[in-house]
Design a protein around this nucleic acid. Structure first.
Length: 766
DNA sequence: GGAGGCCTCGGAAGG
DNA sequence: CGAGGCCTCC
């Protein structure tokens, strides 16, 4: 037996060795799923499969990168040639080559969700429709679900059922908006995230030579997180695998938590019909968690009706029972969690990084942060505003985008007047209108003097031409300069750096830092990318258009900041925790209406998804699990009374530490759980408009006004403080009492300011 | 064009 | 509560 198989158990080994034909690996939490995938690819390579013939699809870039590194360690650098990446990055690559078949240039832009929403907003405005009725979020959601179910704009218009349901919902124009949106994206040489899948499918469907080419190339196909694939992804895989049927789908139906964004659990349930000769491997031994945690998780998930039978077990020791905290308020919940972390850190000699706090919504992080700060426990929050979503980053990237693709409408609109150059809203609206009337992109309009003269004055025209001339001059240099040089040149010549330099606030300084960080990333890219040979025998460093190829597909996890990985407690949503593990895990906010979320209460399918999310959350824990809930919680500025989550009741009581429940439980079966039938519809009809918000008003409760006394006694005249926005300053005087207490502060960069202490979150420097 | 006031509305999140 | 959009005023 090859030594590659050392350290794999029987089920894992069988799954790895089954390379020919279809197979499905049902991998329970902590059962070594990633291991099977990596070893399977490694085994294929070892058996002399050309890495170029292996396609491995993951859900995150990070997963792909880590897996690739691991495989390289196992079988050598050759493994770098495996086609491994997310669905979106792999198929974006395919579309750069094949997109011309549908009329896209190879340098098409990838619109991110902000671009898509802006475009939709503009379209609604141009059509004079009510922006309240046609909200960008809603529209994009609708369009996205269509495309991920392979329904084109034309098919939508022709589908009576869909059009009628929109009429019933008083939104009859959705089909038209969808169509215009697609046309505008096309005109801008842009694809949104869903187009990357939709268009890939269309090419495989309509161009037999292309289908043949990729079926030949991808002889072995592996798909990770199969339970989270949507219909479009499913169909693409099915097409690619149709010839060889060497497909291996890995997943766990119990961990499907993305149905809300179109993932279809049926893909995993139907695998057996799609590939009748398939083999199923079940990985049921958990290596991660204690018996208590594994069995408690089993006792929860068995409440779900829709699932593939499996029995997760472990040889690990029994371990600690689960402790449950009941808190009076969200703040007290934070204090209990922080205190427990502190105590365990000390008693068990654990590093901060041994702990994770998992919550349902990002808003819950605040109470936890405050509590941890009080005890001086360092923490790191995952999620939040992504680097690539920051305004200054998007601004600079928009310059790059427009250089690479002049037709990129969203990039054009973003920067045509940033930094300000006297091209106002009215002029821009006229450009958009001209583009629409003449079936041109905005850039093409700016190139047509006759058209411009028809609606704009000479001064405006000149300013617009100056702008396009500048962009052109940048574009020319794509050929001559390397990515870093040009990026830096653009950052300076565009005026962005000057603009940010003038902003002396903390925010402004941080923005400039971010620009610098982006430029550093580009420098690194320029240096790391192998040089391309030129016709004249010289070589050429990577250029800015190379860098821009899949920049839209990058996320925060892709630039792991090594400077920030000091020993810290991790805080994140349960969704983000998928795939991770920690010795000590706190799952907080176990309250009805929060977890399970109030939006999920009316359908069984939604509740089951929440339950799977709970399952994911608790199976992150290796040694010890803590659950908590608050009886009162601030939500959207109101103090709400809460009841403990039904999920707490679902855990078999024998796994729970007894004395923690002071006063016993005050709820049992008295609640009414409104359960309607499953509203999953597939593939033509769309999910019905989601439920009406239940109970919000009724839940509201009076706030106890005696708690509103403010005490800022630590602050004194003469102190140096720091303010989020104004930076450091010195307190000149203090006046007023209670909530009216205010300070006069001198900020060197800004001047003198009067601030109400209850709003200004001042930090004392000395 | 930018600052400041008022209003609205809120899920989880990968690419 | 707080972010973001929109409107008004300079």
């Amino acid at each position: 037996m090859d030594k590659l198989f050392d350290g794999l158990n029987k089920a894992q080994r069988e799954a790895v060795m089954h390379t020919e034909g279809a197979s499905m690996v049902i991998a329970g939490a902590g059962s070594g799923k990633t291991r099977v995938l990596t070893y399977k690819v490694a085994w294929l390579i070892k058996k002399d499969t050309d890495p170029f013939n292996i396609l491995a699809l993951t859900f995150t870039n990070k997963a792909a990168r880590e897996m690739k590194e691991r495989i390289v360690q196992l079988v050598g650098a050759d493994a770098r040639n495996v086609w491994m990446g997310t669905f979106h990055s792999i198929f974006a690559r395919l579309l750069r080559v094949e997109g011309h078949r549908l009329g896209y240039p190879s340098n098409f832009t990838i619109y991110d969700t902000d671009d898509s929403k802006n475009l939709l907003k503009n379209i609604v405005k141009e059509l004079n429709l009510d922006p309240k009725v046609y909200q960008p979020n809603y529209l994009l959601g609708r369009i996205s679900i269509c495309k991920s179910n392979l329904i084109s704009a034309q098919e939508y218009i022709d589908n009576e059922e869909l059009v009628n349901s929109d009429k019933m919902a008083q939104k009859p124009e959705i089909a038209r908006i969808f169509m215009i949106y697609q046309q505008r994206c096309f005109k801008a040489s842009a694809m949104d995230f869903d187009d990357l899948l939709f268009n890939t499918y269309i090419i495989l469907r309509d161009f037999p030579d292309a289908l043949y080419k990729y079926q030949q190339r991808f002889k072995y196909i592996l798909v990770d997180e199969y339970q989270d694939t949507n219909y479009a992804q499913y169909q693409i895989i099915k097409k690619l695998a149709a010839n060889n049927e060497n497909i291996c789908a890995v997943g766990d139906d119990a961990q499907s938590i993305y149905a809300f964004r179109g993932a279809n659990i049926k893909n995993i349930l139907n695998f057996k019909y799609d590939y009748p000769d398939h083999k199923i491997f079940k990985l049921e031994q958990n290596y991660r968690s204690t018996k208590t945690i594994v069995d408690a998780a089993n006792s929860i998930i068995k409440n779900n009706k829709d699932q593939i039978f499996k029995e997760i077990w472990t040889e690990n020791e029994e371990g600690y029972k689960i402790r449950i905290f009941r808190a009076q308020s969200d703040n007290e919940e934070g204090n209990l969690v922080a205190a427990a972390i502190f105590e365990n850190k000390m008693n068990q000699h654990l590093p901060n990084s041994a702990f994770a706090i998992l919550y349902r919504t990002n808003a819950q992080s605040r109470a936890m942060e405050e509590a941890l700060r009080k005890l001086n426990i360092p923490y790191r929050i995952f999620g939040g505003l992504s680097f690539y979503k920051r305004k200054e980053i998007k601004d600079l990237l928009a310059y790059f985008r427009l250089c690479v693709n002049h037709n990129d409408e969203e990039a054009f609109l973003r920067i045509v007047n940033y930094p300000t150059r006297g091209i106002g809203k009215t002029s821009v609206e006229k450009l958009i209108a001209l583009a629409g009337e003449n079936n041109k992109s905005i850039w093409e309009v700016t190139d047509d003097m006759a058209l411009l003269r028809s609606v704009l004055n000479q001064g405006t025209i000149q300013r617009i031409r100056d702008f396009t001339t500048m962009i052109r001059s940048f574009s020319v240099q794509l050929k001559t300069r390397n990515a870093y040089d040009l990026a830096k040149h653009i950052a300076v010549s565009s005026g962005i750096i000057r603009e940010l330099n003038e902003d002396k606030t903390l925010e402004g300084v941080a923005r400039l830092d971010n620009i610098e960080e982006l430029l550093n990333a580009i420098r690194e890219f320029t240096e790391k990318t192998p040089e391309l040979p030129l016709e004249d025998g010289n070589t050429k460093k990577a250029s800015l258009d190379d860098f821009m190829l899949d920049i839209a597909l990058l996320t925060d996890a892709d630039n792991e900041d090594d400077k920030d990985d000091r020993d810290k407690v991790s805080m994140m949503t349960m969704h983000q925790a998928k795939g991770l593990e920690f010795p000590y895990v706190f799952v907080v906010g176990l309250e009805e209406n929060l977890f399970p979320s109030f939006q999920s209460l009316s359908s069984r399918a939604d509740i089951e998804e929440e339950r799977r999310l709970f399952y994911v959350a608790i199976t992150r824990a290796r040694e010890r699990l803590f659950l908590s809930y608050a009886e009162n919680r601030y939500r959207w500025g109101d103090l709400l009374a809460c009841e403990p989550s039904r999920f707490i009741d679902e855990i078999d009581q024998k796994f729970i530490e007894k004395p923690s429940l002071r006063g016993g439980r005050h709820f049992k079966m008295t609640r009414h759980h409104h359960i309607s039938s499953d509203n999953t519809q597939f593939p033509v009809s769309l999910p019905a408009n989601k439920k009406i918000k239940p109970l919000r008003q009724a839940e509201r409760m009076a706030v106890n006004p005696s708690t509103l006394s403010y005490d800022f006694s630590e602050l004194q005249t003469g102190m140096e403080i720091e303010h989020d926005h104004f930076g450091r300053g010195k307190i000149i005087s203090l006046e007023g009492i209670g909530s009216n207490r205010k300070a006069t502060i001198f900020f060197p960069n800004i001047g003198q300011k009067q601030l109400l202490l209850k709003f200004a979150k001042l930090r004392i420097i000395k």
